[in-house]
């Protein structure tokens, strides 16, 4: 049973990794804690739902549309709000993104009402057996796609000009500016990429879980727990953290009941911040920004 739970947890963690990597990327580059990140996932889930309901599009076809839409939404949010709060006091950064989060989730609530919406695919409940372990097909697909996307992101950051510019800005904003990097453009790209990653995660989640307007809060908190555990601003940290939190979630849901599963990772979150605030892979002092 423990093996089954661990494997399921790792598969789930793959999706969390996508959300968390976006959050940590945005933090690393802009030094902004983005409280709207969960709502971007929520928007992506609703878009997937709408495409399915309106045009009968399978979620895996939406995979080519929703992240693109989220990319554009990310550009918009960055230009309208986030750009204006870079480098400003904490309260401005926190409450600008919190306010935006309230707007997004309540706009969706006003339009769709609070009901749960889900996409029922023919493969939603398909499973395959590997040895003693049963695995859901959508879970495996989600994990596979997450792994590929993460690899692509890694290569993008390593080898393309924009990727190098993003990494340079993370290391030192002022030096990057002096080297002729258009920091403003880097910010926009980073925020948009982070949003698109949230969009991919949203599409992958949709065959598995229903969505509702305030679901963003849950994913925001998961992503934060992952990022803090892995070390703020660290992408490898986010990956490892996501897998750990995925396993913690499935194991605690089984042994403590699903009502308590969130409690388990909040406790981890608080413990990490007390005992090792820089996380597993983070730089010391990042939490004090």
């Amino acid at each position: 049973m423990l093996l089954q739970l661990t494997v399921s947890g790792i598969l789930l963690g793959g999706i969390y990794a996508l959300i968390a990597v976006g959050l940590t990327l945005i933090f690393g580059v802009m030094r902004i804690v983005n409280f709207t990140h969960g709502d971007l996932v929520m928007l992506g889930m609703y878009l997937t739902y709408l495409l399915y309901k309106g045009f009968g599009l399978d979620p895996y076809i939406s995979l080519f549309i929703v992240p693109l839409a989220l990319f554009l939404i990310g550009v918009l949010i960055q230009k309208l709000v986030v750009q204006r709060v870079v480098g400003r006091p904490h309260e401005v950064q926190i409450f600008a993104t919190v306010g935006l989060s309230m707007m997004l989730s309540n706009a969706v609530l006003a339009y769709f009402k609070g009901d749960y919406r889900s996409v029922q695919t023919t493969y939603s409940t398909d499973t395959i057996q590997i040895g003693p372990v049963f695995l859901g097909v959508p879970q495996i697909v989600a994990f596979g796609i997450s792994a590929v996307i993460t690899l692509v992101l890694f290569l993008f950051l390593k080898f393309t000009y924009t990727g190098k510019a993003i990494r340079a800005t993370t290391q030192n904003r002022i030096s990057a500016t002096l080297m002729g990097i258009d920091v403003r453009r880097v910010y926009t790209m980073t925020f948009a990429i982070g949003s698109a990653l949230a969009g991919i995660a949203a599409v992958l989640l949709m065959p598995l879980y229903p969505t509702y307007p305030s679901i963003g809060e849950a994913y925001l908190l998961i992503a934060f727990v992952v990022v803090v555990l892995g070390g703020l601003g660290s992408i490898p940290g986010a990956l490892v953290g996501a897998l750990i939190i995925g396993v913690v979630e499935t194991v605690s849901a089984y042994y403590l009941g699903s009502g308590w599963k969130q409690a388990a990772y909040f406790v981890i979150f608080i413990l990490v911040l007390i005992m090792r605030p820089q996380g597993l892979f983070g730089q010391r002092g990042a939490e004090q920004l």
């Binding site: 926190i94 409690a263 909040f266 911040l273």
Partner: peptide
């Protein structure tokens, strides 16, 4: 006491987490 070393958004996050923990406990 546990947040002596953290600032800004991290303080905010811990307070959110504590409130959520209490909410879950009140239901459970």
């Amino acid at each position: 006491v546990i947040t002596v070393k953290v600032r800004g958004p991290f303080y905010t996050l811990i307070t959110i987490a504590v409130a959520e923990l209490l909410y879950i406990s009140a239901i459970q």
